[in-house]
């Protein structure tokens, strides 16, 4: 006895096996990312005022990646449609486009955005020393505006070795723009466009610093969640790309035996891809905009 309904739908359920399978799998994926997003909410609500950073991510790049993913979701549908119309050449084309988008996304994310983060530096100032750095932080102004205080000074760390070497007593930071003119109302809200660090150097004494790190997962719960969720999402993108590549190169055999079967496989992979896309649609606003 062979296993039925691998390609054709079962009359009473109207589904073929793999489709049931992928929907169930996606249900569990929803719960997985649901868990992570609930952690995000938990931690963000717990964060003390000033300890949940804003505007540290590169919004235009993020927007670009969003566009890429949405585009790829379209191309994968087109690839599937092409198969349905039995236009194999065109299927190959769209599939290639999808794979390209996936890889491009990963390159931008892991090759550009992440590195840009972890050579950026931030130093949390001790509550007792906030006064001393008022000229960078501008908390009086923020207080007047009724905005959360600034407790961290960020920028590009000039003396990298200061992080390791205890003999060095202060950090030399090329300030981010905000801290050069903290009272400027234009600086109250995070910027949409990415602004590189200025060349104004501030020296921050280690004894005034609560914690100083590069923008790594250890920096704050914000970056912890950011790297964890985008990392896991990246793995999903990678998985999708691998599957697509397989279908791209080895789909031919299946196609010749039974085109419908390949179409089904592409449909299943596509459903997964849409989900990965959907997750990003949540990630983008949560981390880049809000």
């Amino acid at each position: 006895m062979e296993i039925p309904y691998t390609v054709t739908a079962r009359p009473d359920t109207g589904l073929w096996n793999a489709k049931v399978g992928i929907w169930l799998f996606l249900a569990s994926e929803v719960m997985l990312f649901g868990g992570l997003f609930s952690a995000y909410i938990f931690l963000r609500l717990d964060a003390e005022p000033g300890y949940w950073p804003h505007g540290l991510l590169n919004v235009p790049v993020g927007t670009f990646n969003t566009a890429i993913l949405i585009l790829s979701s379209v191309t994968v549908v087109l690839a599937w449609a092409a198969l349905k119309m039995r236009r194999y050449a065109r299927y190959k084309l769209y599939m290639a486009a999808t794979i390209f988008c996936g890889i491009l996304f990963l390159v931008v994310k892991l090759g550009y955005e992440w590195p840009q983060k972890y050579d950026h530096f931030g130093a949390y100032i001790k509550t007792s020393s906030l006064e001393k750095y008022e000229k960078y932080l501008g908390n009086k102004h923020l207080l007047a505006e009724g905005l959360p205080p600034r407790v961290e000074i960020t920028g590009h760390l000039h003396n990298e070795e200061a992080l390791k070497d205890p003999k060095i007593k202060e950090y030399e930071v090329a300030l981010d723009k905000v801290y050069t003119d903290p009272d400027d109302p234009k600086m109250d809200r995070p910027h949409f466009l990415y602004v590189p660090p200025t060349d104004q150097i501030a020296t921050i004494a280690k004894e005034d610093v609560e914690r100083a790190t590069m923008f790594l997962p250890t920096h704050s719960t914000y970056f912890a969640t950011y790297f964890t969720i985008t990392g896991l999402h990246g793995l999903h993108v990678l998985g999708g790309v691998v599957v697509f590549t397989y279908l791209f190169f080895f789909g031919g055999k299946t196609y010749r035996q039974n085109p419908e079967h390949l179409a089904n496989r592409v449909e299943v992979a596509g459903l997964f891809w849409h989900f990965v896309d959907l997750v990003w649609i949540f990630v983008f606003p949560l981390f880049y905009l809000l």
Binding site: S28, M31, G35
Partner: peptide, 8 residues
């Protein structure tokens, strides 16, 4: 449905 949140 219950395992994935633990996985996270």
């Amino acid at each position: 449905l219950a395992f994935p949140p633990l996985e996270s």
